[in-house]
Design a binder for these strands. Structure first.
Length: 84
DNA sequence: ACTGAGCGG
């Protein structure tokens, strides 16, 4: 289950994001998107969880919840770039 | 250095 996390704190890192979701289930990978030029956070990231049940539960619990001082938005992620 | 909707290389 790919999870999309938005409105993150700009200081939030992938490690903190992963540890946040690990509280609700198994996390295979998690990363915050950083700008390729300035190396600064874009304010959103992605989390991948092998357990779909834990993933949906994590979405319910973490969506619109306070994380690192900011209210984050957690949704199901869309498939990657559709190159047509 | 800073910003605040939105989906990554």
């Amino acid at each position: 289950m790919n999870i999309f996390v938005a409105k993150l704190n700009f200081k939030t890192t992938s490690e903190a994001l992963q540890q946040c979701f690990e509280e609700y289930g198994e996390v295979s990978s998690a990363k915050v998107i950083f700008d390729r030029e300035t190396q600064r956070s874009k304010g959103f990231g992605f989390v991948e969880m092998p357990d779909d049940e834990a993933a949906e539960q994590a979405i319910r619990e973490l969506n619109e919840s306070e994380f690192d001082g900011r209210t984050i938005v957690v949704k199901k992620a869309r498939p990657k770039t559709s190159n047509y």
